[in-house]
Design a protein around this nucleic acid. Structure first.
Lengths: 115, 115
DNA sequence: ACTATATTCAACCAAATGGTTGACCAACAG
DNA sequence: CTGTTGGTCAACCATTTGGTTGAATATAGT
């Protein structure tokens, strides 16, 4: 697998991940596929703003959207992160699955980020 | 180790990585520490512009700068990438060291990106 | 047909980004 | 001291970003 992505892909992915709202959205989608309205619910911004965030996430390939009826379902597309993950691995030989660190980290991130 | 980073850290790191010039700089620094002027040399933009990029990379913790004489040396700080690497690992249980994919990928990235 | 819900579109706005140039400061060389 | 090199600072500019609001579109319910 792991086909080499177009150069601009990394731009889109990293730019998408640079926003706390969008990271929070990805974390929400990690637990369940969600409709746009439900994605927007916990945020204080307008639905249109969240819709724009979702568009960016989709252009980066990080989520997929499927319209069923009038509801557009958003679903995580975690493979897209692989490109950036691979790129970063060139810089430090990280251990892959630092679950301990992940746990502690996500606590902080979920607790304080992007409400 | 792997201390949980402040929430804003991910903003800074991902934003820093979203720019092809800055990624190219990091790739250059992967091979050697470099003076600011030498970092700037391959790029078509002004020295001041590259200096700004380096400032962003430093604020993100991705590089360190040490002034010796009138020369400011830039050196990769790969540990900073760990925070984002850890965050991403929550989304797909990537295998850590996909060297095969890395190789193919860096070829494309180095060949076409940010000249 | 009417109405409500789900979502996007369009126009707009403030702030940030990525670049420029020219002035500036620091450090070495003569 | 003078001049040159290394690097940043300040002011500026165009574009992008992240948000707003109000209108528009599409689907569903009655």
């Amino acid at each position: 697998m792991t086909k080499a992505p177009a150069p601009q892909t990394l731009d889109l992915i990293f730019a998408a991940l640079a926003d706390p709202t969008r990271r929070a959205i990805l974390e929400m989608l990690l637990e369940d596929d969600m409709a746009v309205t439900d994605v927007a619910e916990p945020f204080e911004m307008s639905l249109a703003a969240v819709s724009k965030h979702l568009t960016l996430l989709m252009r980066a390939g990080l989520i997929a959207q499927e319209k069923r009826g009038r509801v557009k379902w958003c679903k995580l597309e975690p493979d897209a992160m692989r490109a950036s993950s691979i790129w970063m691995q060139g810089f430090g030989q990280f251990e892959a699955l630092d679950l301990d660190g992940l746990e502690r980290f996500l606590e902080a991130e979920l607790g304080e980020d992007a409400g």
